[in-house]
Design a protein around this nucleic acid. Structure first.
Length: 257
DNA sequence: ATGGCTCTCGCGGAGAGA
């Protein structure tokens, strides 16, 4: 089974681009973030024609998450309990074959001084509490986490420490999820490699190799054991057939499921 | 660099993103 996470920065502006990726990479289950689309305006038919059904938790203008799947799937959760004010940022499905798949779009925080920053930390506390309440043995938590786990994951290295995305308070929240039994699948298979999943649109950041790794596939021990390969698909941060890319690359993993 | 692109909403320019 090939699973993926991708912040697509506007679903309706990215449909033709997504089609190229889906046909090229042939994923089975995809967690999408930043739909910027209301649930009732989701283009189900477009994805049905490509072989997918979609489970959707959207909203107008911002945020929004969805799961595309070729397999049978059942919606388990839409929205992070207690954090509705932060918008549509979590969705969970039980995938046929024994995988519980959750995708999240974690709050940005904007800057350490901004009012959103403590809210981001609280949102993470709610996520950890919600996650702990679950019990499925084979679980994946993926998405745009908006936290850089280590200096290796930031183009600025140690110089970025303390800035938004790079604070010890944020990293403690991410570590808490790991302590609760999750492993970063990419970092597990590539312990020393520097690879980014996001680059700013501005200033030629992609070509200057100025990126961050903030999009992860996290898995329980059973998911880790089943993982054969993990790819950060940076080619799809580039234009395709003249179509504009998201500022995030897709990340996918092949699981023996 | 005091955010240099790209999205949405909605029809002008502002807000958000990371």
């Amino acid at each position: 089974m090939r699973i993926a996470t991708w912040n697509i920065n506007g679903l309706r502006a990215r449909l033709d681009f997504m089609k190229i990726w889906l046909e090229s990479r042939q994923p089975d289950v995809v967690g999408l973030q930043e739909l910027k689309t209301p649930t009732d305006e989701f283009p189900h038919e477009f994805f049905n024609e490509l072989g997918f059904t979609a489970l959707v938790h959207g909203q107008k203008s911002w945020n929004g998450v969805a799961i595309l799947t070729r397999r049978e799937a059942e919606l388990k959760q839409a929205g992070l309990p207690g954090e509705d004010d932060w918008g549509a940022r979590l969705i969970t499905a039980e995938i046929d074959g024994g995988l519980e798949f959750t995708t999240v779009y974690c709050p940005n925080g904007k800057s350490v001084a901004h009012d959103d920053y403590p809210g981001k930390l609280t949102w993470y506390d709610s996520l950890a509490e919600h996650w702990q309440a679950g019990a499925h043995p084979n679980r994946v938590l993926c998405g745009d986490f908006n936290i850089v786990p280590s200096d290796l994951d930031s183009w600025r290295g140690a110089a970025a420490e303390g800035d938004i995305f790079h604070t010890s308070e944020e990293r403690t929240r991410l570590a808490k999820l790991m302590d609760d039994g999750l492993t970063d699948l990419y970092r597990h298979l590539h312990p020393d490699e520097q690879a980014f999943s996001w680059w700013d649109y501005r200033g030629g950041a992609f070509h200057r190799k100025q990126g961050l790794r903030i999009d992860f596939l996290l898995g329980t021990d059973a998911a880790v054991a089943a993982t054969e390969a993990v790819t950060i698909d940076r080619d799809f941060r580039k234009k395709q057939d003249g179509l504009t890319a998201s500022d995030h690359a897709p990340v996918y993993a092949d699981l023996a499921l």
